[in-house]
Design a protein around this nucleic acid. Structure first.
Length: 775
DNA sequence: CCGTCAGAAGTTTTT
DNA sequence: CTTCTGACGG
């Protein structure tokens, strides 16, 4: 260990690091060396006799956890750091739950449902309840349930809580509580937890089993929480429970960077920390080492528009640096072009590499114009925050096999692969299986295991049995083989790999490569030693647990690749870049139109803007477009109100069409401001009285275009077996026709029929087409 | 059972 | 404009 590690700190940083026992709150302004303090403090604890096994450090992102681990290792210079518990809330709790879940009635190898899995379950339930999923949107319902769990509210409480019920009534969705209840039961039956359950169930576990609580209270004698301003009530309560005995809780945060209230984070947690414990030591890190004076001054002045903050004065010794450039373009495409041009220019003028640039936007959808312009100029880039690798269909399919092998209760996975690749277990069979499983209160898997007993017959029962035997063969391998071998066996037995290999289309090729990459990742997982040391869990279950908690930002950690990065501001939190472009600074976009209704929402948007500004080390461009395409139509937007909140002194507005923001406001177009509403209004124009739609509307009358045939009143399809060439038949759409020829196997005959009014000669598969025999 | 096509919906932010 | 969904033809 480096002896002089304390010398590298400033006074406040050192004060935080050497505080060992008792609650500690570090208010860490942007760029004030927060991670350095955290990592040095861990090293310092260990140097002062604290066992690595007794230290728990929680972060929000895998990336932050990884970075922290690496930096601690660097200071300690050895493998001691391996015994630390450093990870995200979700991954650490998932790991603990893997040891304890049986107490709650879950299998220890429970499946973790990602957002898509969860929404899919919710959708199934909505349909089962005969509710209209246009009204009960799975997304909306999911968010309600998520919010409930994040406030530690179970289904019963949800249905009994007056306030919540009133909200649902007002939103005209009174049955969300019912859906929540069914969802909780269903996921439990599936032996699955969603992201929120990892927190919620952890809390339940600690609350219900004192001996478990006791165990972890004594294990985690020192607890550190990064980004404390983003904790939600569930996380808050868990920390409180775990830390209750030793009260060695160290939280680090910056209320000015709280940007996750939409996900249940309450800024109150950090504002109230001093009141939660006696004798809280508070340290403020106010010296910024990251940004120029210009950048920092702008940031400070912007955030000063928020009220109710922890008082602090962020300052820097750095040079004043360049002014902040404010840029107006006419359209979003020009905005993209401007950014790409400027990147080229800056690379030449100031010798930057691609990796020095980041483009930050409010919503993922904004990336398009920048992608195009960067591609046109052949500037390499990478977008963060698209589909995670593990959300791709082919990967989810493959992983579903692994999941079902680990946890046969997982019906989401079972339904996904029971007939993929096609093995003759069709819709009817699946429906029947579901009905039987409900009837007998057993899992679908158990029904399949006893298929013959339940009266499945013929080819179906054979297909089912083959499927069951195959999955069981994978399970048998689990004890004797590692995760990689099992995964390879899955690929072979199911023929998935071969099938993808034979698909020579571009997409097929990509899919094949993705599956290969999946296998590689499993191989890598089984072969690299566990960084966290203590628990050398190389099992399939451990692997599956990890990958579900990975996001797009966690892949391709080729930090060194020289590319321009594109991401949302949320995704950029905790990062820094020499040159930052913050784009799309327009009303309704940033601040988002969805977040301008209350002061709280607007303040969070402002904090987001603050985060964006403070990512920049040396140079900052702020851009906005007069008009941009949204949902395919051109929309005009005012410049963001935030642009008016910046101090003139540090801003160069010469790019903003020569005028000030104010000029841009009124001066531009007098007519131009009839905007965005109309795009919503237009659609609803022939205003239907908005009646509450809770039940599925009766089957819609099907309108046929005037050109098509109107079937006879008594139209009813006949058995195709009796159809022969020469017969006259009626088709629902093509009208009357004569069968000209017949081909194909007896059980799959294809007729060539001439429809004089229906577009001439057609080939029709008799098994599927509905035809009436006329004569 | 699967692929195609038209129509509709979507854009806040994520572990 | 793009992506997803459902209906329907083959």
């Amino acid at each position: 260990m480096k002896a002089n590690y304390l010398d590298e700190l400033n006074e406040q940083q050192r004060e935080a690091v050497i505080h060992i026992n008792g609650p500690l709150m570090i208010v860490a302004g942007a760029g004030s060396g927060k991670t350095k303090v955290l990592t040095t403090r861990i090293a310092h604890l260990m140097r002062n006799g604290v066992d690595a096994f007794n230290i728990l450090s929680l972060t929000f992102t895998n990336k932050a956890a990884r970075e922290m681990k690496e930096r601690v290792e660097k200071i300690l210079g050895g493998s001691e750091a391996r015994n630390l518990y450093i990870g995200t809330f979700h991954s650490v709790f998932a790991r603990l739950l893997r040891a304890e879940a049986h107490r709650l009635g879950y299998p220890n190898d429970f499946t973790i449902y990602d957002t898509d899995d969860a929404k899919s379950v919710i959708k199934t339930i909505i349909n089962e309840l005969n509710l209209d999923d246009k009204h009960y949107k799975p997304n909306f319902v999911y968010n309600r349930i998520s919010a409930a769990k994040n406030s530690l509210m179970g289904p019963e409480e949800y249905q009994l809580d007056n306030l919540v019920q009133q909200e649902d009534m007002r939103a005209n969705r009174p049955l969300i509580g019912k859906i929540y209840d069914m969802y909780a039961k269903r996921t439990f039956k599936n032996g699955a937890m969603d992201f929120d359950d990892l927190l919620f169930k952890m809390y339940i576990l600690l609350k219900t089993f004192p001996e478990v609580l006791h165990k972890y209270q004594h294990k985690f004698k020192y607890i550190m929480i990064d980004e404390y301003q983003d904790t939600n009530p569930a996380q808050y309560e868990i920390i409180k429970l775990l830390g209750a005995v030793n009260e060695n809780i160290c939280v680090v945060g910056d209320d000015a960077q709280s940007i996750y209230s939409f996900r249940g984070a309450t800024i109150e947690n950090i504002l109230q920390f001093e009141k939660d414990y006696d004798d809280v030591k508070v340290v403020k890190l106010e010296q910024n080492y990251r940004s120029t004076k210009s950048i920092l001054n702008v940031a400070n002045e912007v955030i000063a528009h928020n009220k109710g903050q922890i008082e602090k004065n962020l300052w820097t010794d750095n040079t004043e640096g360049d002014t902040i450039k404010l840029v107006r373009t006419m359209t979003d495409n020009e905005e993209g072009k401007f950014v790409a041009d400027t990147i080229s220019e800056q690379k030449l003028r100031n010798h930057y590499d691609n990796r020095d640039f980041v483009i930050l936007y409010r919503t993922n959808a904004q990336s398009r114009s920048f992608e195009e312009s960067l591609r046109r100029k052949a500037i390499p880039y990478r977008i963060f925050g698209g589909l995670s690798f593990y959300q791709r269909k082919e990967i989810k399919d493959y992983v579903a096999y692994l999941r079902i092998t680990m946890n046969t209760r997982d019906e989401e996975s079972l339904k996904r692969i029971i007939n993929y690749p096609v093995r003759g277990i069709g819709k009817t069979t699946i429906e029947k299986t579901i009905v039987l499983s409900n009837e007998h209160n057993i899992t679908m898997w158990e029904v399949l295991e006893r298929a013959r007993e339940f009266g499945f017959k013929g080819g179906t029962v054979e297909a089912i049995e083959a499927f069951v035997i195959m999955i069981k063969s994978f399970q048998a391998m689990l004890t004797s083989h590692n995760a990689y071998d099992v995964a390879v066996a899955v690929g072979k037995s199911t023929n998935i790999v071969k099938e993808l290999f034979n698909d020579k289309t571009t997409e097929g090729l990509a899919r094949y490569e993705n599956v290969q990459e999946l296998l590689n990742s499993i191989k890598e997982f089984t072969e690299t030693p566990d960084e966290e040391g203590e628990l050398l869990d190389k099992s399939m279950g451990s692997y599956l647990q990890q990958i579900t908690l990975l996001t797009d930002a966690d892949q391709g950690n080729d930090e060194n690749s020289d590319v321009v990065k594109l991401m949302t501001i949320h995704a950029a939190k905790g990062l820094e870049f020499p040159v930052v472009f913050t784009v799309g600074l327009e009303e309704t976009l940033f601040p988002s139109g969805m977040s301008i209704n209350t002061r709280e929402e607007l303040e969070e948007e402002r904090r987001l803007f603050y985060v964006a500004i403070t990512r920049a080390k040396a140079r900052l461009w702020l851009t906005y477009a007069n008009s941009r395409y949204r949902f395919g139509n051109l929309v005009q937007n005012e410049p963001s109100r935030f642009l008016e909140e910046m101090p003139e002194k540090f801003i160069d507005r010469s790019y903003a069409g020569g005028g000030s923001v104010r000029n841009a406001f009124g001066g531009g177009s007098t007519s131009g401001w009839s905007n965005s509403n109309n795009m919503f209004d237009r659609k609803k124009a022939p205003s239907q009285p908005s009646q509450p739609v809770t039940q599925k509307p009766a089957a819609k009358p099907t309108f046929s275009p005037a050109t098509t045939h109107v079937p006879s009143a008594d139209f009813a399809p006949d058995d195709p077996a009796g159809m022969e060439p020469g017969m006259q038949v009626e088709h629902q759409k093509f009208g009357f026709g004569i069968i000209a020829a017949m081909e194909g196997a007896p059980n799959n005959r294809i007729a060539t029929i001439n429809f004089p009014k229906g577009g001439g000669e057609k080939k029709i598969m008799l098994n599927y087409a509905k035809l009436r025999i006329v004569r």
